[in-house]
Simulated scan of single mutants.
Amino acid sequence: MKRADDFQERRQHLKDLTDEQLEAKFWQLAEQIVEPMVDMAKKHTSPSIERSVLLRMGFSSMEARAIVEGVMDRGLMGKGAGNVVYKLAIKKGMTTREAGLQLAEGNLWDEAMETFQGGAK
Rank of each mutant, 00 (worst) to 15 (best):
H13P: 06
F7L: 15
K42N: 10
I67S: 00
E63M: 02
M1H: 11
A120K: 14
E35N: 10
K121L: 13
V34D: 10
M77Y: 04
W27T: 04
I49W: 11
D19E: 12
I49D: 09
L17D: 05
A64C: 08
R11E: 08
R10F: 02
M113H: 07
L103W: 04
S61G: 12
K79T: 05
H13Q: 13
D110A: 15
A66R: 14
M1P: 08
L76C: 06
L29C: 05
A81P: 01
E105F: 05
L17K: 13
V71N: 00
A24N: 04
V34Y: 08
Q21E: 15
T95V: 08
E111T: 05
M40I: 10
K87Y: 09
T95Y: 04
E111H: 12
V85I: 08
I67K: 00
G70M: 03
K87G: 01
V53E: 09
A64E: 01
E31F: 07
A4L: 12
F116V: 04
K92E: 14
K79D: 05
E111Q: 15
R10V: 02
E9R: 08
R65A: 14
K79C: 06
F7I: 13
V34Q: 11
R11K: 12
L108G: 02
T45W: 06
L29D: 10
A81T: 01
Y86R: 15
L103K: 03
G78T: 03
G100I: 00
A120V: 13
A4F: 05
A104M: 06
L54W: 00
E35S: 12
F59T: 00
L88C: 03
G70Q: 04
S60Q: 09
M94T: 15
Q21M: 06
M77L: 14
Q12P: 00
